[in-house]
């Protein structure tokens, strides 16, 4: 029986993961910004047979609320077996180029809040001496592309932070998994023109995440075909990369 904390529990990928963990009889502490949607997510998992579902509405960029959130979570679950960090937004690259404010905001949501949460969680997990921190980063963090480099840079920060944290917590028996999804059909990508053949469903992503948690995968590309694609993209030499319009 797993005890699971999810930050960004209303996201489509988080919901799909939670449904699969529900089938294994998990208990949840769900955190998300929108309280009305959070109640619907909780009702869904309860009706599907989750052992227990507790919720807390919190904006991840409200850093002052993090400690109290974690305290309530620990009070309810006593030990956290898996923490899934799944919140995020996709900033509009064009407006990020025109002024600093949206770029800074995108960093606060996608990078800084995750760093702050992971710092708190790392200490909790270190004390526990067990558990998995599963963090949703992105393939976009592997390389800075002209079409999406603000989001990509925030996710690069998360990926690098997780890599360091993994090495630190490894000694304490805690695992850190960096999840790098490609294009996923979710509300976040609504309205984007994406190559249909490369777009995955949240359920496909979730199956890999749930299996990855069991296997203690370090870097999880999902769907799997992104691993070879990103291997190539990571190795395109800089002088050529800057000429590509990716």
């Amino acid at each position: 029986m797993k005890r699971i904390l999810i930050i960004g529990a209303n996201s489509a990928i988080a919901t799909a993961c939670a449904r699969q963990w529900t089938a294994q009889g998990a208990s949840f502490f769900l955190v998300a910004r929108n309280a009305e949607k959070l109640a619907q997510t909780a009702a869904d998992l309860t009706a599907r047979g989750a052992k227990a579902v507790d919720v807390l509405a919190m904006d991840a960029t409200d850093f002052t609320a993090h400690a109290a959130m974690l305290a309530s979570c620990v009070r309810v679950l006593s030990q956290i077996d898996v923490a899934l960090i799944a919140h995020g937004t996709l900033p509009d690259q064009k407006s990020c180029e025109q002024s600093a404010a949206p770029a800074v905001e995108a960093f606060a949501v996608n990078a800084t809040s995750t760093v702050a949460l992971l710092t708190l969680l790392a200490n909790q997990f270190e004390r526990q001496g067990a558990g998995t921190l599963a963090v949703i980063s992105s393939v976009a963090g592997d390389r800075g592309r002209p079409s999406n480099y603000v989001y990509g840079a925030a996710k690069a920060a998360v990926s690098t932070f997780c890599e360091g944290l993994r090495a630190r917590l490894f000694k304490a028996g805690v695992h850190v998994m960096t999840i790098k999804p490609g294009f996923v059909d979710t509300p976040m990508t609504k309205g984007l023109k994406l190559p249909a053949a490369l777009v995955a469903t949240p359920e496909q992503i979730a199956r890999r995440i749930v299996a990855g948690v069991e296997r203690k995968t370090a870097n999880l590309y999902t769907p799997a075909f992104w691993a070879p694609i990103m291997l190539i993209i990571r190795n395109i030499p800089g002088p050529l990369f800057k000429r590509l319009n990716l």
């Binding site: 489509a12 619907q40 009702a43 869904d44 009706a47 599907r48 509300p187």
Partner: peptide, 8 residues
Amino acid sequence: ALDRFISA
């Protein structure tokens, strides 16, 4: 995408 259970 409206695929949530509400109560059972």
